[in-house]
Write a protein that binds this DNA or RNA. Sequence first.
RNA 1: GCCGGCUUAGCUCAGCUGGUAGAGCACCUGAUUUGUAAUCAGGGGGUCGGGGGUUCGAGUCCCUCAGCCGGCACCA
Length: 644
Amino acid sequence: MINVTLPDGSKRELADGATPFDLASGISKSLAKAAVIAKVDGEEWDLMRPFEGDAEVAIITRRDDEALEVIRHDTAHILAQAVQDLFPGTQVTIGPAIEDGFYYDFARNEPFSTEDFEAIEQRMREIVDADLPFQREVWDRNEAIAKFKAMGEQYKAELIEDLPEDETITIYRQGEWMDLCRGPHLPSTGKIGKAFKLMKVAGAYWRGDHRNAQLQRIYGTAWLDEKQLKAHLHRIEEAEKRDHRRLGKQMELFHFQEEAQGQVFWHPAGWTLYRSVENYMRRRLEQNGYVEIKTPQLMDRKFWEASGHWDKYRENMFISSIDQEEKVLAVKPMNCPCHVQVFNQGQKSYRDLPLRMAEFGSCHRYEPSGSLHGLMRVRGFVQDDAHIFCTVDQITAEVTAFCELLKSVYEDFGFEEPRIKFSDRPEQRVGSDEVWDKAEAALVAAAQASGLDYEHNPGDGAFYGPKLDFVVKDAIGREWQTGTIQCDFNLPERLDAVYVGEDADKHRPVMLHRAILGSLERFLGVLIENYAGKLPFWLAPRQIVVATITSDADEYAQQVTDAMAAAGLRVDVDLRNEKINYKVREHSVGKVPVIAVVGRKEAEEGAVALRFLGDGNRTQEVLPLDQAIAQLKAEALAPDLKRA
RNA sequence: GCCGGCUUAGCUCAGCUGGUAGAGCACCUGAUUUGUAAUCAGGGGGUCGGGGGUUCGAGUCCCUCAGCCGGCACCA
């Protein structure tokens, strides 16, 4: 007899050899039907795996979050089986469930192509129709290695060899096909359903290491039913429409061309947006006790040798030399060493600390060609950079203030809270453990004080100190790091930064490297996608278009435009001989937030009819010109100025 | 950088198995003076990413370079 306890505390008795499926069937038919896997003493089990003794059991059904993960993992197995059926000689490696789907990495000399997808999907559907049971088997380690080697599955054999000695080796079979797998799986392939679709092929390194062989990864998506699958595909389509590269072209914000790979040509509209963001940031920094500086673009290589960057990053630095001189100059890849130079001019006292030194620092890095991505990853960029020189005791207060500022800035730009990663001491590092203790504690305390959730990335800090990174998502779910704050005990030492303490002795300051937006370019990319181009009024490059209905109103329209421009609003006039429908459509598609329509009536009354973009309950308002301007002017203020 | 794909008019794209280029939108011209998401008619515009090759003949096939796209790796 086996005694099981259910989540509600109730107990049941089962015969020896009973399975979670038997348990579910005993409770109700519908539960047995909806069941996916079971949790046995907190461990995920197959429904058909017999209990090994008394246990606490929960039945996981299709409605639970875990179900999709199991289905996706199962689908990955079915994909692997289908591929090996159709392309003999292909080796399997690993195939996990991921967000929205799954992938499987294969080793095969011939490349897969998306044209193979139809045949593969067809075979997958046949495997589902065959309703093959997933069977779990526990194998002896050496037998398993020998078996996979005999099958020509080198990668699988290697995986088993690298598993810890005490790990149970489990093999899952579906029909003739078998794979090394931890499980769990559904009882049979028929339970998976057919709401899956192969999405793309890609290269991926074996075990994520670029020194290893490159495998072919097939990505797929899988859902509970057709409806969910369709909704997912629709979401992807919609997300692609807000891709900042597409919108950048449509809205004439910027362009790229091959002669300046990875560098932005900002167009008038895009640069207007850029400047709005920069000006906003500049005000926020001023309000928060920062001073702004500007440092050189080109510095002698000796300088970078001293800072340590030449050794570490030489391959990623742009170098310049000039015929008349022997010197080799490097385009600055970062601002920190320059800021230390400014700090080092003259004598600093503890009374000068904390010293918050900001720069909209233009930097260039030779990023790998494959990593370039629109505005998100470029070779020439501007950081909203700053370095806070302070004492160890000031770290907590400074980091807390920074987190507060960052939060408020993101709110002003309308973002959901970014994800935060806390990275602590790596194996290779400088500085004593006591100082690391202090710095790590300071960062964590500051994050908590600011009410921010963070996740822990052990050992992922910079060699000079721990850091908090802030991560936001783009339109199609890719994550981009924006803000950061890092404690640095190293650079002040290398570049000999000192201040005179209360005790009249010389001391090393701590440097906090920090950026809120990260790079202006990337942030603008994220901003454009976040709003799908429909930027809030204060950021919109063209805030208003004055559109006439007939040429009778031309003169008045020009007056309206001039008055609005005089009030500091970014306004254009559209006097073209076109129907108002045409103008409204064109400027709506062009994402202009306000269209001021003027016809004979408005001209006579000295009024304007304001039409607001994409605001359901506020599409139109007819106002006297003065009042309209006063209202728009107030709305055009940046959030920080509205508060003031 | 690596694997795969793509590159045709300003933009989005079509051009089957090789026979010297096409659509919609945009643009220009004309008509229309119009009340809140596309008025009608006409017109101009391409050494088909660069270079090389195969062929009587290449946008179509092959080689090569570049850029872009999707991943991977990288990201001070």
